[in-house]
């Protein structure tokens, strides 16, 4: 399935779950927040959530900041 992840075209080979995408990207789920098409997807909903082809996904984490 084709997604836009952090502004880049991205082909996802998994089953369209959050867990599958994050594993593919190498991100730690507990250290990650997600928006899909601009909407925040809460981690408590990740189990049931599925991506659709063409979704715009932002994968976010903390970095240093003042």
């Amino acid at each position: 399935m084709f997604l836009t992840v952090n502004d880049e075209n991205y082909e996802h080979h998994g089953d369209g779950t959050v867990a599958a995408l994050l594993t593919e990207l190498g991100a730690t789920p507990e250290h990650t927040a997600l928006t899909v098409n601009g909407e925040l997807v809460f981690s408590k909903d990740w189990k049931v959530f599925k991506f659709n082809g063409g979704d715009t996904v932002e994968v976010l984490t903390f970095v240093g900041g003042g």
């Binding site: 952090n6 507990e30 250290h31 990650t32 932002e58 976010l60 984490t61 903390f62 970095v63 900041g65």
Partner: peptide, 16 residues
């Protein structure tokens, strides 16, 4: 802390 896009090439940036 600040929020940024996850960087696949530098996962070590992760502060969490």
């Amino acid at each position: 802390v600040a929020l940024r896009r996850f960087n696949r090439d530098k996962p070590s940036d992760d502060l969490c």
